[in-house]
Design a protein around this nucleic acid. Sequence first.
DNA 1: TCATTAAGCTACGGCTCCGTATCTAATTTG
DNA 2: CAAATTAGATACGGAGCCGTAGCTTAATGA
Lengths: 191, 191
Amino acid sequence: MTPERRRGEALVRAIHEAALAEVAETGLGGLTMEGIARRAATAKTVLYRRWATPFELLVDALGEAHPVEVPTPAADDLRADLIAALTLLTDWMITPAAGAVLAITSERARYPELAEALYRKVFDPRGGTFTATVLRHYAASGRLDPRRLTPITTQIGEALVFKLSIDSDRIPGPDEIAAIVDEALLPALGL
Amino acid sequence: MTPERRRGEALVRAIHEAALAEVAETGLGGLTMEGIARRAATAKTVLYRRWATPFELLVDALGEAHPVEVPTPAADDLRADLIAALTLLTDWMITPAAGAVLAITSERARYPELAEALYRKVFDPRGGTFTATVLRHYAASGRLDPRRLTPITTQIGEALVFKLSIDSDRIPGPDEIAAIVDEALLPALGL
DNA sequence: TCATTAAGCTACGGCTCCGTATCTAATTTG
DNA sequence: CAAATTAGATACGGAGCCGTAGCTTAATGA
């Protein structure tokens, strides 16, 4: 009984949401215009008027998705700042956009253009990873040996969060994040 | 001009190979009986006589895939043994079965039965991970503090190998594996 | 108010995969 | 060599998605 026809931006936003939800549910291989339209409760024609393929639509949706918060180090407690950075990561991992990003990166070999677009539109604009931001900050203020900042050490935190997520099929909790920092990250930094 | 009709085991092996190759190329969502049959150069009927779904077929194929070598620590050079263990991992990662395993784990949320079957048929029979085998060995012979063997530290090596693979879209080389051991693993073990 | 824009609906032929049935011919086995 | 298996080929109706077309009707704004 409510005709209420969506238009313009509101409609596009609903379609973007539908696309992310659809990817999370069906995977990249199962992403179809028909499915997105159904979930957004609109018509296929509306989609085709704006995008040529489901992938173009998806890249747009990712570009519009809320950007991740950037860690703001307190600069006087490295351990707490690292934990905060990894917590930001796990917070992001439960968002719809994260599911889509996971799908794209893990199927990169099959859809390289998509992965490329993801990096260009989402990752590159944001500067660097979570822990790297913190570590660079501490290195710049002389509280950390810059030689300890390598492509390996700056990835340890994120790597373990992802690995634990895969192995246990759930996002690591505060205790596990603390263990990552205490048992892996800080020792590798020489602390 | 070669009628040469495959039968029994030889045929099944060819079908298994086709299934793994098909998963690598199309993803789990795109895995179809039709596609596997086409790639194996046989008829759909042959597949349906043995398996009810592409997923059953795939699980069988994984069970038959060459099991991974188990690290055999030399017990007098931890660093070399860790590097050897991670090299075994990267060697495995370029096999067809690894592509299928990656697809299944990354799409676990969509096909939980598949992931469950994977663990039951492939991971569980093999005991533990690559570096964990080495570390347990050294801890048992008293050359390593057993308290250093935590769910975190035993995962650092594998976690970084996977993370680097995802980020750079290629398998880490010998220098990168050495860096993982020297900059992340050994420090976390207190060495 | 009234013309313009765009959303929403229905339908189309074409394609691919589904799962099954039927038939043939190659290979094994006794 | 004859009999029993089973691989392989073909065809089927059904379903879902493709991309496009034609139309109705709600929202907008001059």
